[in-house]
Design a protein around this nucleic acid. Structure first.
Lengths: 356, 356
DNA sequence: CGACGTAGAGAAATCCTTTTCTGCCGTCAC
DNA sequence: GTGACGGCAGAAAAGGATTTCTCTACGTCG
């Protein structure tokens, strides 16, 4: 009805209630003594004008709760979605807003995004996921961490190793290497000897490197070293893994088990095996990594390494905010969460050696 | 090295460069004439102090680009993730920040979140997903729409029907009913007659209602009406659908095809059918809805209705911002995107009638 | 040589809220 | 009856950036 032009301000409310802006502010903050009569008049004016305080002005004055910025490669990835959920949940619990940005894996864009977040005076800037383990990039990141710290913000690395001593950053990791070790040990215990690792990354993404290291350690502890022909390069995507596995089988590679670097890659591997007439787990056992959506949709359901992604997200908010509030010490800003193997139906003992 | 306490301000830069704050601002905005010499001095000071403008102060002055708020039930849902990705992409393309909030389906929390977004002066507030089709809720939402409009913001309903004429809101829908109609028509054309619909919602979620309506219309156009025993109540989740299907089969329900309200429900239905010794598609055909991650992970791969979720997200940002910029008219603030059936391997003609 | 015009830079107002700092008035005690 | 004190509310400053207004100085033209 009324031609309400633009948002209302404290002044509008004050005029309507016939008091000063200071009084309105005091009524709304609630922490100052105000006469019952005045309070009611103000509250009615607020109601009638449908007033909502401008959070930018409030932030400027230093009173608003800072937001939390969440920088992710791609929201569509199931593991990213889990981390985002955990982070958002924890942020909401504390009354913080959650900003989200995607980088599509571009380091340049990541730096640009962090700059924007610094302008926003976000309480924490959370970088999620593994990256190229590149020396130059690490140096730039260390610089970013210091910039953020100087701006009163905090850099959080989530699911990614620390960048160095003396760099002010909170780090939430999970034990990638141990998870891979457990997965491969499981296959070894069941009697497998020729175990393919699909997902070796020549570019050296931290996640892929750590999982491959776990694979190698398990084999090494078991007495043999890896046959390098069994280590197959691939990214984390299903189609790539599919094509690489098909190619390897066509090339005559012999194996009885596949350990895939991610569940997505495992999904691709499963299709590839089936395409080549191999059954899982009767002919070939299959293990994935992440324990995300595909794992229970596949048939057979996938044996995989569970990663506590939601807890990762929660910790990525809890730790830096706790540091600001003084409830969590600087020494506790590095957290390593455990992983564990979930055994489902995609693993079995190897078939007896064919005799033809 | 230097004990840089707190973030830098324009004044710090101005002092270091030996000019006024106005000059610094002008150099940074770039739209005013400044001497080459002065500009260089200012830029060097900015560089040295690692200055980043406070976006709250900028927003207060009315100069900052508004952010886009994205309110979603649960980021983990694959369709929500797709919409979020589309929206974030479009927002980033326009240099807007993306705020994200989850409501866990609570109407109360949704309203609280919208209030926060109003305080943030977000350019658009995007509500994603279907809701209970409740008259009281719709009235409150209409009120919210008007409040937002008065605050200079815009309510966007994404994947949800309009709430009424005269309510200032942008609506991005997709044709739920037509998609369901296409899916069921496909089954009918293949010769199926007894087609189960799993996912009828007694609470009347808009999405479920529309999909059920498409199911009914297809049957009706084909000459027969639905056998109400074939319409099975369930929510959108896989486990619920699984249990309901198992229960129905145990109860002696006879059918040759299942149309599930979502791909997740279809995943549950597939497991249920397999558990009962029924093969897909030889014994029973199966169709899902959404065309999200599970659809291609399942075996057989799922025939399903494709929904352009990413485009939905992009439009949810494009339309309201276009309205503000004057490039998209108020008449074009209601968009209905098409859906189409994707035929994969989960559908086949029904088996010949058993004669035992 | 003087006057006018213009470019470049500083001073100050503005955006909206919070928070001191003041000031008023009423009450209580001496 | 007067002085002191306390409670409540208004005035004003602060917070950081933008923008209008204003002023100075220089260059050019008559």
């Amino acid at each position: 009805m009324s031609p309400n032009e633009g948002p209302k301000t404290l002044r509008n409310v004050a005029e309507r209630a016939g008091v000063s802006v200071a009084t309105v502010s005091r009524v709304l903050s609630g922490s100052y003594p105000v006469t019952r009569h005045t309070r009611q008049r103000v509250l009615r004016a607020v109601e009638e004008l449908d007033y909502v305080a401008n959070s930018h002005a409030r932030a400027l004055r230093g009173q608003a709760t800072e937001s939390v910025a969440f920088v992710v490669n791609d929201v569509r990835g199931p593991s990213f979605a889990l981390v985002a959920h955990g982070a958002e949940e924890e942020a909401a619990r504390r009354g913080r807003l959650c900003l989200i940005c995607t980088t599509q894996g571009h380091a340049e864009r990541e730096l640009a995004v962090v700059r924007t977040m610094r302008a926003q005076r976000a309480g924490a800037v959370i970088l999620v996921g593994g990256v190229m383990d590149d020396e130059r990039y690490r140096r730039r990141l260390a610089e970013v961490a210091r910039s953020l710290e100087a701006s009163g913000s905090r850099l959080v690395l989530c699911g990614r190793p620390p960048i160095g001593d003396g760099v002010p950053a909170t780090v939430i990791e999970y034990d990638n290497e141990a998870g891979a070790h457990a997965a491969v040990s499981h296959l070894l215990a069941r009697g497998h000897r020729r175990i393919v690792f699909v997902g070796a990354d020549p570019l050296g993404t931290t996640t892929a490197t750590a999982r491959l290291a776990g694979y190698r350690r398990a084999l090494h502890e078991h007495g043999g070293d890896a046959d390098e022909r069994l280590v197959i390069e691939s990214d984390f995507e299903r189609d790539t893994a599919h094509d690489r596995i098909v190619g390897s089988i066509r090339g005559g590679l012999a194996f009885t088990a596949v350990f895939a670097v991610t569940d997505s890659a495992a999904a691709g591997a499963l299709t590839a095996l089936n395409d080549c007439g191999l059954r899982v787990p009767e002919d070939v056992s299959l293990v994935g990594y992440d324990d995300v959506a595909p794992a229970t949709d596949l048939r057979p359901r996938l044996t995989t390494v569970h990663v506590p992604y939601e807890e990762l997200g929660r910790a990525a908010v809890r730790l830096p905010l706790g540091l600001r509030e003084g409830t969590i010490s600087a020494a506790d800003q590095h957290l390593v969460l455990g992983t564990h193997l979930v055994v489902r139906e995609s693993t079995a003992p190897p078939p007896p050696p064919a005799r033809s």
